[in-house]
């Protein structure tokens, strides 16, 4: 069973809409300003990753018709809270907090730390803050799974739907930029952004009359790009290939596919990549592009490659 993408949200420097993801990043794009997008209320003490994640989740939930700003505060979620799950992918989200707190303790002892850092020391802070802000009481999962993490999150979101654990899932990929994560990853720059999609059962989406922007199909996580591409393309030749980050030889199964690097020049996307790729697929289909799209994350030097097939949304009547 496929899952339908019914909402997309971005909080990426310079990329106003998913279509921008199909173009090379514009040089010198200004950083995302969460306070400008969400207002200052509720952002205090939240780390950069959480603020970016809230921006993208807010946009995706509104696009899917699940969050309505015209309603009174407290009633803006248009569906029951326990019908909405949250699955977030990030590898680097709270690394800065952990290192800063460890540094403070080593230099001055635990008395010098701030209790405000306690929530941010837990790696699932991003997923729980999204739940708290929007009142989402379904399953709440934080995926920190390396280079493949974003596509893995999409897979677990689909599993939540197929398993009947929720009717909607907000899938979010976030990576913040700061000195600590640059050093840890050897990257010149990290994305400093977030992408979100809302997934639901296609029948369910058609039933409530919303647009299905794209559909998420099969998933695989295997050793190496070639094996992953082979497994996913059996019986369904991909028309487009969204590449993993880093270098890699084009898998034979993708010999005829159009090649697009969504991460290109945006900085290291890491755990955000897979969700950015889903957002980019929505734009690809909106422009009349042919499918399926095969998104791959994790190259041959990573512990595995994950792949997902994406299809144009089937419009209901």
């Amino acid at each position: 069973m496929k899952s339908a993408i019914t909402g997309v949200g971005l909080a990426v420097p310079g990329d106003a809409s998913p279509a921008d993801l199909l173009e090379p990043a514009s040089a010198g794009a200004s950083a995302v300003d969460p306070a400008a997008r969400l207002g200052r209320k509720g952002l205090r003490y939240k780390d950069r990753a959480t603020q970016l994640g809230l921006c993208a989740a807010d946009e995706a939930l509104r696009a899917a018709g699940l969050w309505d700003l015209d309603l009174d505060p407290g009633e803006r979620l248009t569906v029951p809270g326990d019908s909405v799950a949250v699955v977030v992918s990030s590898n680097l989200g709270n690394i800065d907090t952990v290192c800063r707190v460890a540094q403070t303790i080593g230099d001055e002892g635990s008395r010098a730390t701030s209790p405000m850092d306690t929530p941010n020391a837990s790696s699932n802070i991003l997923a729980s803050e999204v739940a708290i802000r929007f009142g989402l009481r379904g399953p709440n999962l934080m995926v920190c799974n390396g280079a493949t993490s974003g596509l893995d999150a999409v897979h677990w979101a689909s599993t939540v739907l197929r398993g009947g654990r929720a009717e909607y899932v907000v899938v979010l990929g976030v990576e913040p930029d700061n000195e600590v994560v640059r050093q840890l990853t050897d990257a010149g720059r990290v994305l400093d952004g977030a992408a979100a999609v809302v997934l639901e059962n296609p029948e369910h989406a058609r039933g409530r009359g919303v647009t299905v922007h794209a559909e998420v199909g099969r998933y695989a996580r295997t050793s190496g790009m070639a094996a992953c591409a082979d497994r996913l393309s059996s019986g369904d030749t991909p028309h487009v290939w969204f590449t993993p980050e880093g270098t890699g030889i084009r898998p034979e199964a993708l010999a005829g596919a159009v090649r697009l690097d969504i991460s290109g020049r945006r900085g290291l996307c890491s755990g955000a990549l897979g969700v950015l790729q889903c957002a980019a697929a929505v734009a690809w289909f909106a422009q009349g592009g042919e499918g399926p799209v095969m998104a791959l994350a994790g190259n041959d030097s990573d512990d595995a490659t994950a792949g997902v097939l994406l299809y144009a949304g089937v419009t209901g009547d």
Partner: peptide, 8 residues
């Protein structure tokens, strides 16, 4: 190869 780390 099919491994998943959840930080929950």
């Amino acid at each position: 190869a099919n491994t998943h780390t959840f930080a929950n």
